[in-house]
Design a protein around this nucleic acid. Structure first.
Lengths: 158, 158
DNA sequence: TACGTATTGATATAATATAACATATCACTT
DNA sequence: AAGTGATATGTTATATTATATCAATACGTA
């Protein structure tokens, strides 16, 4: 049991369904969904939290899938480009996308106490308008919020 | 001449006035506005762009103000805590705050072509509402947008 | 001046990420 | 099924960003 939103849910199904989506996407676009790429995505989906590149690499290494930094960074780059994972800039960590397949500007809520990271969607109308006023052409957005998740608010009496 | 917004302006005045604001803030709050802290803020104000910690450290070093990493990271930490600078997570770089003194949730527009970084303000109502819906208590926000600034849109024919 | 706190100096190392080049595999054509 | 070009992986080295730790110094106040 892990959480989506900040509530518990069994995500065995979402792991395999997301992997299937990724697999199809790669087939459709003639991209190679290689062993390492697949396994990295699977790890991030299973762990369901933001992980450092080297944390993931350690697992790969134990499984004989590669032990040098480029192995993991290449996989993360591929998965990020295809939209299956996101980088949390604030944490220098990576998390599987929970809205894979659809283009979106993710918003992350990061609990500073327990480290939980939840991907949400927030209208970025205001951002778009600000950019327009400045004549700035948006390509990618990073929206990350740090604070306390519901659970941690309780356990620390806010 | 550097830029504010994405237009040119002479900011000699804003450098000295911001330094004065910082000085006053420290005096009022019994904080030490030491040589290193002052100089780091001055450098970031003068350069008027996002700089890596080691870039700033190199300058300090040339001036005999310290040559080891902790020197710069301590200063950046102090200046960030007091709200005089911001970290651009996406670039692992630091920039002087152009709205020093007032509490605010900054939005950064980062040009991927020329590296210009502009601090704007965007209403974060939508973000606040999303957080509320999730029961998440916001403490800090990171909003960073990458794309093309007006100048670079022209020079590259978009 | 003496005391406690805040700051700086200095050394070492951790954590994150990329460059560069050789080798292997894949996907497609012949 | 062999050749070919593009893609991916292996490997070594190194760059970049950041922190831990402890000693020495300076500051602010009693």
């Amino acid at each position: 049991m892990h959480d989506l939103g900040f509530e518990n849910h069994n995500h065995t199904a979402c792991v395999s369904s997301t992997l299937a989506v990724a697999e199809k996407h790669c087939r459709d676009n003639k991209l190679q969904f290689t062993k390492v790429r697949r396994r990295v995505l699977e790890i991030l989906l299973q762990e369901h939290r933001a992980m450092g590149a080297y944390d993931v690499l350690t697992i790969l290494s134990e499984e004989g899938l590669g032990s040098q930094p480029p192995v993991i960074y290449r996989a993360l780059d591929f998965l990020g480009t295809q939209g299956f994972i996101h980088k949390i800039e604030k944490l220098n960590a990576y998390v599987a996308c929970t809205h894979a397949g659809s283009a979106h500007s993710p918003t992350f809520m990061i609990c500073r106490a327990c480290g939980a990271v939840v991907e949400a969607r927030t209208p970025i109308d205001a951002l778009t308008q600000t950019a327009q006023e400045l004549g700035f052409q948006i390509e990618t957005t990073v929206v990350e919020v740090e604070g306390l998740c519901p659970n941690c608010q309780e356990s620390r009496a806010a």
